[in-house]
Computed example of a mutant assay.
Amino acid sequence: MNAQRIREPQSGVRGRLAYGESMALHTSWRVGGPADRWFEPADREDLSDFVRQLPDSEPMSWVGLGSNLLVRDGGIRGTVICLKDGFDEIRPELAVSGSRLVQAGAAAHCARLAKTCADAKLAGLGFLIGVPGTLGGALAMNAGAHGGETWDFVESVEVLFDDGHFEWLPKAAFETGYRHVVAPAGFAGFTAARLRLDADADGSGAADMKAWLTKRRATQPVGKPTAGSTFRNPQGDHAARLIESCGLKGHRIGGAVVSAMHANFIVTEAGARAADVERLIDFVRAEVERQRGVKLQPEVRFVGDAA
């Protein structure tokens, strides 16, 4: 830990504050070195006070379920913020001219959000049933599946700025694209969103969601340590098809393995290190480019320092 860079906020906090927190406890790959400082705010006021008192030079990262994140073995410098209790409420009750606005906290699990909306007979977010993260993470990367993307449904988002104030911003304040989101200056993190959905009049949305969930369980390594899809799908093709066509299913580097069930998933085994995952990602990219002439782009984010 860089003790000179880290200093306590000027007043006490009510949430959980820890030092040298293992990021392997907070990522779906179950690998990663320590965060200099880890903070789980008790509520909005606690979060605002904490962020406002951080030094301007303090690096700040936000983590949800860590499901699209590779934290290197040397860990993360600065402060990592994780929203949990108090930031996961879902309210599918705001009626607006023929459609409805669902307000949800950034810590709401994507699968729970999809199911809650389906139970309220609202269509559109069924694709989130297979996204293994939180709404905040889905907003940060414009998560999507089955032809739907998170920002397709965003009406507005609540964000925290790095001076500690909250503000609701319209969708137009952000630049969004395929797995790509650019936030305005001073942005620290997402805390909530309002999503515009139509009524699922004939129940087809709920039926689609159930079908996608069944397919996911049959074709993906559900329940194993993965980060979901490792690579973005290139235009007009699928990363899994390209990887499998190169004979890479089951390929291993250390404790990281290309899933034999779905080639776009990398699974970690006991004793795996983040370096194993990163080396395997680099190897798969190089082989697909060598054999198929396609440069795959990772869908996962790499953060932190090497060991």
Rank of each mutant, 00 (worst) to 15 (best):
Y178R: 04
G205M: 13
W151F: 14
A120D: 11
A118M: 13
F166S: 05
L169Y: 07
A185V: 09
D208R: 14
C110E: 04
M141Y: 00
V154M: 07
A211T: 07
L139C: 14
F190Y: 14
R179M: 06
A201P: 01
L122I: 03
T176L: 00
A140W: 01
C117L: 08
G164M: 02
A188T: 09
R179V: 05
L122E: 07
G148V: 11
T134C: 04
W168P: 02
A206P: 04
N142F: 07
A107K: 11
D202H: 08
A120L: 13
K121E: 15
F153R: 13
V182G: 02
A173Q: 08
D152L: 13
D200V: 09
E158F: 02
L125M: 00
A118D: 15
E149L: 11
Q103L: 12
S204M: 14
T191N: 00
A111S: 12
D208T: 12
F174C: 15
R100P: 04
S204D: 11
V157K: 12
A143D: 05
A140P: 07
A108K: 08
D119N: 12
G189P: 00
W168D: 02
G205S: 08
L113R: 09
E175D: 12
V159K: 07
E149M: 13
A188I: 05
A123L: 07
A192H: 00
F190R: 14
H180L: 06
D198K: 02
K171A: 14
V159Y: 06
K210S: 13
A123K: 15
H180Y: 15
D163V: 02
A145I: 13
G189D: 01
F127S: 10
E175N: 08
P184S: 11
M209F: 01
R179H: 09
P170C: 01
K115N: 07
A104D: 12
A201C: 03
L197Y: 05
L122D: 02
N142S: 03
L128E: 02
A108T: 01
L135T: 12
L160C: 09
A140S: 15
E155Y: 15
A106Q: 10
G137Y: 01
A145V: 11
S99Q: 08
V154Y: 01
P170N: 04
T176H: 10
E155I: 02
L101T: 09
D152I: 09
A143Y: 01
K210C: 06
G126M: 00
S204H: 12
G203C: 05
L101C: 11
S204L: 14
L195S: 05
P170L: 03
T176Y: 02
S204N: 10
T116F: 09
D208F: 14
L197M: 08
G133W: 12
A206D: 07
H109M: 10
Q103H: 10
D162V: 08
L160W: 10
A207H: 06
F127P: 04
L135D: 11
D198Q: 06
L101H: 14
I129Y: 06
G136Q: 03
R100Y: 07
D163Q: 12
N142R: 08
A188P: 05
E167F: 15
F166A: 05
A201W: 03
E158N: 07
H146K: 14
E175L: 14
L195D: 10
A107G: 09
A199H: 10
E175P: 00
A106I: 09
Y178Q: 00
L101V: 09
D119L: 15
K115I: 15
